[in-house]
Write a protein that binds this DNA or RNA. Structure first.
Length: 197
DNA sequence: CGCGGGATTGACT
DNA sequence: GTCAATCCCGCGT
């Protein structure tokens, strides 16, 4: 199926975050080629969004977020887990979509990729993959043929782990396939996700 | 240059 | 439910 091009990512971030659900992520890494369906995302809108790394201006770490859409933004969190984002919106606007969960397509335990730190470990994505184009032959997303996957209701709710973000903490910018086995467990979240459809 | 804290996870009570 | 692991970043001194 069609590979997602830069124009796909060069759009409003909330739209990209929703549209990425159900797409296939492909990565050729240290474990060989690994593929997974994206089943959970979060949008980070930079500038005003206090949950975003870019809310306090341009720094060496968040530099990729300011760059052109369709590139990776990979950073280390809590000293041990890599998080994979895909940069969105035109160059100069810091925004990205965090990939929070995948359904592994090789028959592996669906929980092995049920979290942003878990899926990078499974894929083999590390800091050396920061700011790489996601439109290459070895790292990309693509459409999945209709009927190829089960249909899920798309749910939305507050983003995980951003309790420091003031008013932005509660923005419903997390999107996921409701009841999907690979969606991350939102632990201390008391928020009730709202059905989108 | 030191310090506080994080877009998490898994182990343990 | 609670907590530690672990290190880079960003900010204040």
């Amino acid at each position: 199926m069609a590979r997602l091009n830069q124009a796909f990512y060069n759009r409003p971030t909330l739209q990209v975050a929703v549209d990425l659900l159900g797409k296939k992520l492909v990565f050729d890494g240290p474990h060989g080629r690994r593929e997974g369906l994206i089943v959970e995302t979060e949008a980070y809108l930079g500038f005003d969004d206090r949950a975003s790394h870019a809310s306090r201006g341009r720094t060496p770490r968040n530099e990729p977020m300011f760059g052109p859409a369709g590139f990776s933004y990979v950073y280390l969190v809590y000293g041990m887990h890599w998080c994979l984002n895909i940069v969105t919106e035109p160059e100069g606007i810091p925004a990205a979509v965090l990939i929070r969960a995948l359904e592994p397509l090789n028959g592996a335990d669906p929980r092995i990729t049920s979290g942003p730190g878990k899926l990078t470990r499974w894929l083999g994505v590390t800091g050396s993959d920061n700011q790489r184009a996601l439109t290459s032959d070895t790292f990309f997303c693509e459409d999945v043929a209709p009927g190829q996957i089960d249909s899920y209701a798309i749910a939305t709710g507050p983003r995980i782990g951003v309790t420091y973000a003031g008013a932005w903490t509660h923005k419903p910018w997390r999107f996921y396939f409701d009841d999907h086995l690979s969606v991350s467990q939102a632990r201390k979240s008391h928020a009730v996700a709202m059905r989108k459809s």
